[in-house]
Write a protein that binds this DNA or RNA. Structure first.
Lengths: 303, 303
DNA sequence: TGCCCGCACAACCGCCGGTTGTGGCCCGGC
DNA sequence: GCCGGGCCACAACCGGCGGTTGTGCGGGCA
């Protein structure tokens, strides 16, 4: 591909060969091999060089795109000056959406999103320089952040109740946490010891809820299927969580108010991290309308 | 890259090897070679398979992107079911911008834009199936379209006058063609015998203009430089033409009215072309607000 | 603790992709 | 019209890349 682009730009195989530090014959063989693989002729050979055919013209922007893609791929892991790397809890949760907004607002910033196992791994990765920042709960009960880690409360995300159409609360426009006492709240896939488990433990204790965090995580589709078919099960989802409906199950998202439980997303980073894009991200968080803890909301005491 | 993605998805080199119909050792060597080339470790090898490192997680979406890019590249020249291929006169002129809008409105359509030498080549390419459609002047004086070519007037693009700050008309908000009689209009790079030359010939004859189409085309930058430094030269540009200012030269774009010369862009295609995206493009042209010949505009008699 | 699964290393080898050498074609100049 | 030069294709050659088979090793799990 690189040879093709070089030849297209130079207009002559010989110049492309010089550019790539190979012989003209090597360029000729490379182009011939590419043409054979594609089944079309990319250049018309003349006595004064090689000009693109129509197929070649159509192919050229795709070839450039592929080279750009390859450069971005290398740039994402290049030691030293790699792209900004941010850890999020889940790809479909609010932090991931926020990073999507950030990407749109700053398309020039190379950004990679990863998901680490837990908050401890995230802190370790931040300290070792493996990642640049992490969206996690700022503090866990009984845990203390190391001195070299900085954190800001980035934004709070209200929780909503997700139920099937047969649930007793399905028709409600909003519910209070007190109304949920006694209801079965099912949160499979929550690993004990993580900040999510701590959050839901506190939430359950504060309002007398029954939250089942047991059970393996089979993915969202089976969860949604089960919810849709159950008349008694419900689960919590973040307000900004984007679900992919496998089909229309008649699922209902119901606001929770008085007080509204909100999940406190925070941004963690290393004190001495010099990555220029990190400052851009922090500015974006500050300048955006990422409201923090409106009145009438609930967060755990440790947040 | 394909091996990396397969291994990341499978979680085990052996399964990826089966998927790719090679041995496990080959996959191991490929991954090792990629890691060596990148200078980072992409997988952590365990007794139960291979899991992505943080670097590997960051790399994975870029690898997928590269594979998609490669598939698009192949798709652009795949004989039979290739992407929709449309010829435009110039990459910075209105038809190219229109196709950009079309791309945004229909991101699912694979679209390639090419530029053929002249209208005859475009018609030949349409008849031979090399391209699917062409934005060209629908008819040339004295020429007749073949029976198997369909054409619709797609949209008319008003011309503007482009001058430097020292030009006598630089301060005008609008001019009439009659005012331009005697002024030097410079249109380098227009090849005699093309529809552009015919258009400007007719325009010059209709209003007594002096249009110099001679001279080779050195690109837009030298043209803009010359215009900016000249107190007497001017040129025509399409209203929707996007110029790249090399620097702020104080260039002025001045509307032309009473009547407004408009360039009649048309879409040409082959009667029997079954490409599904071609119908989408034609629908897009019909449904959009691509006004044709408003009152008070001028076009050549042959349009 | 022993088995077994899964990846790495070693040795081997075919062929891919580079080189040098040469031929042919097209265009421009004399 | 012939000659010359520039540019690409073809041929022959060869080293090493990338595949194979065979084997070693380490870490879970019974």
């Amino acid at each position: 591909m690189r040879t093709f682009v070089a030849a297209a730009e130079a207009g002559r195989f010989q110049d492309a060969a010089a550019e790539l530090s190979v012989t003209q014959q090597a360029v000729s063989k490379r182009i011939a091999a590419l043409e054979k693989a594609l089944g079309v002729r990319l250049f018309t050979r003349t006595a004064r060089g090689a000009r693109l055919t129509v197929d070649g013209q159509a192919f050229l922007p795709h070839a450039r795109d592929l080279l750009r893609s390859a450069a971005r791929a290398v740039g994402s892991v290049r030691p030293g000056r790699r792209a900004l790397r941010v850890d999020v809890i889940g790809r479909r949760l609010a932090p991931a959406g926020l990073l999507g907004d950030f990407r749109k607002a700053h398309p020039e910033v190379e950004l990679d999103v990863v998901t680490l196992f837990d908050a401890d791994a995230a802190v370790d990765a931040i300290r070792s320089g493996t990642i640049d920042a992490s969206f996690r709960a700022v503090t866990m009960p009984g845990r203390q952040l190391p001195d070299d880690i900085r954190a800001v409360r980035a934004f709070d995300e209200p929780l909503q109740l997700l139920t099937g159409p047969g649930h007793p609360l399905a028709a409600a426009r909003a519910v209070t946490p007190a109304q949920l006492a006694g209801q079965r709240i099912w949160m499979p896939g929550i690993v004990a010891g993580t900040e999510w488990a701590a959050y839901y433990d506190d939430l359950a204790a504060a309002f007398g809820l029954t939250i089942e965090v047991t059970g393996p995580d089979f993915g969202t589709e089976p969860l949604l299927d089960t919810l849709a078919g159950s008349g008694s099960l419900a689960t919590f989802v973040g307000e900004q969580t984007r679900l992919v409906w496998p089909a229309d199950h008649g699922l209902r998202r119901i606001a929770v108010r008085d007080p509204a439980p909100v999940y406190p997303h925070s941004l963690l980073w290393h004190r001495g991290n010099p990555h220029p894009a990190l400052a851009v991200l922090r500015d974006h968080l500050r300048s955006g309308r990422h409201a923090v803890s409106a009145a009438g909301s609930w967060t755990p005491a440790w947040a």
